[in-house]
Computed example of a mutant assay.
Amino acid sequence: MKRSELKSNAKEQLRGNWFWAVGLCLVGAIMASLTSSFSVGILGGMVLYGVTYTFLTLADGKKIENIFSAMFSGFTSRKFLPTLLTSLLVNIFISLWTILLIIPGIVKGYSYSMAPYIVKDLAEAGEDIAPTEAISESRKLMDGHKGELFLLDLSFIGWAILATIPLGLGWLWLTPYYQATKANYYRQLAGDQFKKTIEA
């Protein structure tokens, strides 16, 4: 995959949708920060998963107009439990790896990075998702691709520095751009393999 193509696709999808995307990321970040204590921090993680789901929907050529419906898309009946368990387990696993050593924690973060997207695809395909299923599938999917995603992330460093200079306001633009690019990365990598309903 060419990073330039992924970014170009993201910008094309965001054309005419920038205010919507900025509002989604901004309100989502505020909601997540307001629920930062552990007792409700899980809900904040689910909100962030909802934002991730929404950008994958955009990458697939659709759009959830209402940012609150989009932000809380992880709370819908079929996605609620998988979103809750996956977000919680990913945070626990990465934290445990990071406690051991920083580098393994970062590597595992990349291994599990596709889990939210996989949850969305599997849930919308009608599958009952086991607690660690999306994490295991993400680990398999990212085998041999962690360095690729790392380089994609690295390509945003220049933009991140520039975004920080004007009191951090540039992040309002950069966050949707990054989210859309990463959603396109997932779809290019995974294709539709998780969108197919599992036959009985």
Rank of each mutant, 00 (worst) to 15 (best):
M1E: 13
E5K: 12
L6S: 03
A10K: 04
E12S: 10
G16V: 06
N17L: 13
N17C: 12
G23N: 09
L24N: 02
C25R: 04
L34R: 07
S39Q: 01
S39H: 12
G41C: 00
G44A: 04
G45P: 00
L48N: 07
V51T: 03
T52H: 06
T52M: 08
Y53Q: 00
T54Q: 07
G61F: 05
K62T: 10
I64G: 02
I64P: 01
I64E: 08
E65Y: 10
A70K: 04
F72L: 11
S73G: 06
F75S: 06
K79A: 06
F80G: 03
P82Q: 03
P82K: 06
T83E: 04
L84Y: 05
L85I: 15
L88S: 09
L89T: 04
I94A: 10
L96R: 02
I99Q: 03
L100E: 05
L100T: 04
L101H: 07
I102S: 13
S111G: 12
S113Q: 14
Y117P: 02
K120N: 10
L122G: 03
E124M: 12
A130G: 10
E133Y: 13
E137C: 09
S138M: 12
S138F: 08
K140D: 14
K140S: 15
L151T: 01
D153V: 02
I157T: 06
P166E: 04
G168M: 00
G170W: 02
G170H: 04
W171H: 01
W173L: 11
T175D: 06
Y177S: 11
Y177I: 03
Y185Q: 08
Y186I: 00
F194L: 10
A200G: 15
